[in-house]
Structures are given as C-alpha cells and as structure tokens.
C-alpha cells in the first residue's frame, strides 16, 4: 500500500456526519455555560460555607448552654443537699447535744450555750422545743 492510500479518508478515521453542523452554536453555548457556572459555583460555595458556619456556631452555643445548665443543676443540687445535710446535722446535733450533755448548773451556763446555738443558726422555737424535754436542775 502506498502513502496516498494510507492517508486516504484521514488515515481511516471518520466522524459522525452531523458533527460540524451546529458546532459554532454548540461552542458558543458551552462558552456561555462555562462563564455562568463559575459565578453560581462561587455563590453556592459561599452559601454552603455560611450554612456550615451557622450550624457549627449553633451547635457550639447549644453545647455550651447544655453544659452550663448541667453545671448549674449539679451546683444547685449540691448546694441544696449540702444545706439539707447541714440543717439535718444541725437539728440532730442540737437534739443530741441537748439530750446528752451534762446537766447545766447555772443560768449563765445555759445563756452561754443558747448564744452558741443561736450563732449557729438554730431558731428560738427549736431551742424552746428542745428545752421542754430537758430536765433542768435548780
């Protein structure tokens, strides 16, 4: 086979017969398309970034809020418990103290003890109640 035969029909290649029919139009359409998506892609990217940042921020705020609430709850629980215990302790301590202490001999000694109790936050009623049960020696 000679060279001209080998070069015939573009060396054996061909293409769809209508390939070049609307080629200019197709290229112009592609170019316009190419110009547009660039802008919209940027907008889409910016929107996604905004949405992402918003979600992340709201999640963080939510987490902080939940964590803060849990802390305050436990603090509150702790302090409530503490006060209850403290109050309970005080009450039992007072009763125990009053029932088991040696008999006070003078009025001054009573007065001094009452001062200590009042200072510790025991109310007058509680003191009177406790005293009603105690035998006071004169």
């Amino acid at each position: 086979m000679n060279n001209s035969e080998l070069k015939e029909n573009s060396g054996g290649f061909n293409m769809p017969p209508i390939f070049f029919d609307h080629f200019e139009e197709d290229i112009m359409h592609k170019i316009r398309e190419e110009d547009q998506p660039k802008k919209s892609k940027k907008v889409i990217r910016a929107t996604w970034i905004t949405i992402g940042v918003s979600i992340a921020a709201s999640l963080l705020i939510g987490l902080f809020f939940i964590a803060g609430q849990e802390n305050s709850n436990s603090l509150q629980e702790f302090s409530e418990l503490d006060w209850d215990q403290y109050a309970g302790f005080e009450e039992s301590w007072i009763l125990q103290e009053l029932s088991e202490t040696e008999v006070l001999e003078t009025e001054d000694e009573y007065a001094m003890d009452i001062d200590v109790l009042m200072y510790a936050g025991v109310t007058n009623d509680e003191i009177f109640e406790a005293f009603e049960e105690l035998p006071i020696e004169e």
Partner: peptide, 13 residues
C-alpha cells in the same frame, strides 16, 4: 466505531 480504515491503515495507526 468511528474508525473504518483498512487493515494497513489500522496497522499504521
């Protein structure tokens, strides 16, 4: 499907 050359053309390619 868009190559319909002879055997010689195919060999050359």
């Amino acid at each position: 499907s868009f190559f319909d050359g002879s055997e010689a053309q195919k060999l050359l390619q």
